[in-house]
Amino acid sequence: MKKFTVRTIGLSLLATTLLAACGNGGSSDSSESGTTAGKEFKVGMVTDLGSVNDKSFNQSAWEGLQKLQADFGYDVKYLEPQSDAEVEPSLLQFVNSGTDLTWATAATLADAVTNIAKNNPDAKLGIVDADIEGIDNIVSISFKENEGAFLAGIVAASMSETDKIGFIGGMEIPVIQRFQAGFEAGVREINPDAEIVVNYAGVFNRVDIGKSAASTMYNDGVDVIFHAAGGTGNGIFNEAQERFKAGEKVWVIGVDKDQSLEFGNDVTLTSMIKNVDTAVYEVSKQAAEGEFPGGQVVRLGLAENGVGLADTSDINVPKEVLDVVESYKEKIISGEITVPEQP
Rank of each mutant, 00 (worst) to 15 (best):
N119D: 11
K67T: 10
Y74G: 08
F41D: 08
T17V: 12
Q66A: 08
M45C: 10
T47P: 00
G25K: 14
G25P: 00
L79F: 10
L65T: 06
S56E: 06
K118H: 08
S51D: 06
G50H: 04
K67M: 13
L101T: 09
K39C: 02
D111Y: 08
D71R: 08
L101G: 10
K124A: 10
T47L: 02
T16M: 03
D100N: 15
N58M: 12
G25I: 05
T47V: 05
T47S: 11
S56T: 13
T99W: 13
G34W: 06
P81V: 07
G98E: 06
S31L: 13
K39S: 13
N119P: 04
V113H: 07
G26C: 08
V46E: 02
D71N: 10
L109I: 04
A70S: 12
T99Y: 15
A70K: 15
N115P: 01
G38S: 07
G38W: 09
L18G: 04
T102Y: 00
K39A: 09
T105V: 14
G34I: 06
N58A: 05
A104N: 04
S28G: 15
T114S: 12
V46H: 01
S60P: 06
A123L: 06
V95I: 13
F94N: 02
A20E: 11
T99M: 11
A123E: 11
T36H: 14
Q59D: 10
L49T: 00
L19N: 14
W62F: 08
T16V: 07
G73S: 10
F72P: 01
V46T: 09
V87E: 00
F72I: 02
N115L: 05
G73P: 02
D48C: 14
N115W: 03
K67P: 00
M45F: 04
A106M: 12
A106S: 14
S28R: 07
D75K: 12
L19E: 14
F41L: 10
S27H: 12
P89A: 06
C22S: 15
S51P: 01
